Amino acid sequence: MSAPHVRSVNIGPGVPSPHTSAPTTGIDKRPVDHVEVRDPGPKHGGLGSGCVGDTIGDRRHHGGRTQAVYAYAREDLDWWAERLGRPLRDGAFGENLTTVGVDCTTARIGELWRVGEVELRVEVPRIPCRTFAGHMGIPGWVRRFTAAGRTGAYLSVVRPGTIRTGDRVTVERPDHDITLLLEFRAATGDRAAAMRVLDSGVLAPEEHDWLAGRLAPR
């Protein structure tokens, strides 16, 4: 078995978005040899993506410090390809990093990934949206993706630099059991999971506030 590594680095130039009110989308990502990554700053008023040359069309809901880089496992793409009955290329889910041998679903919040010269921090799971559903073109995709729980990992940039195809990935796991999958269940309606995640105090402040807002009476 090969060591954990980045199989593909992917970015998406902005193209017109037919699925949402945002004027453009960068979800249709394509492989490149390397990408410069940096902290894009806050979601509102920042640079959008943490990957130079990548586009975040809907900055109200996507991008920013805690969603700077999106990683998805090649193993999970293969799992989906088998069930969908069609091939899925690297970057098919709009991920910046297609990984091999890296857990992108039950990674722990706060886990550190060293990717070449870059250091990334696991922050939150991907919540499926209309743009993703439109890109996939599969009826009921949001519901199906949610049920499967193979979320991929949104990452912040702790140490900027260049990520290249083939870079090794080493992982440093924190001493708690709050995983991306638990946070995903919390974010998609499981109140008991949400309370557990909030009580743990492991989320970045903006993500903690967002999840707490989901629990607040309306």
Rank of each mutant, 00 (worst) to 15 (best):
E117L: 04
A148N: 05
W210T: 12
V118M: 02
V100R: 04
I56H: 01
T98I: 04
F184H: 03
D90S: 02
V157W: 11
R185V: 13
T179A: 07
V37R: 00
A187T: 07
A22C: 11
V157C: 14
I127N: 13
P18E: 10
S156N: 02
H176L: 15
P128L: 07
F132L: 15
R150F: 04
T170S: 11
S156L: 11
V37H: 04
D76Q: 11
V6W: 00
L47V: 10
D76S: 04
T162Q: 11
A22W: 09
R89I: 15
R38V: 14
G137I: 01
P174Q: 07
A68Q: 06
T98G: 02
V142Q: 12
D33P: 08
T98D: 00
L198F: 05
E117D: 15
G46P: 11
A71I: 00
C129G: 11
H208R: 10
A107Y: 09
P31C: 02
R126F: 01
L211Y: 01
D39M: 01
S2A: 13
I138Q: 08
V15A: 07
A73K: 04
R191P: 04
P160K: 06
N10H: 01
G140M: 12
H135L: 13
P139V: 15
P40C: 03
V69Y: 00
T146P: 09
R86D: 05
I138N: 08
P217T: 06
A133F: 14
H62Q: 10
V15D: 05
D76T: 05
T146K: 04
N96L: 06
A148Y: 05
S2N: 11
H34N: 12
W113S: 06
R38I: 11
D175A: 14
L211S: 04
W141Y: 14
R108W: 10
R218D: 10
T106Y: 12
W79E: 09
A107G: 10
R60K: 15
A186H: 07
G14E: 11
R59G: 14
S156P: 01
E95D: 00
H62M: 12
P40G: 05
R60G: 12
T55Y: 03
P13F: 13
R114L: 15
Y154R: 02
R74K: 11
W141Q: 06
P125E: 02
V69T: 03
E207H: 14
A186V: 00
L155Y: 02
A107P: 09
T99S: 03
E206C: 15
I127M: 13
W79I: 09
R7L: 13
H44I: 15
D76W: 02
T105I: 12
H135S: 15
A73C: 07
D90L: 01
A194G: 03
I138E: 13
R74V: 10
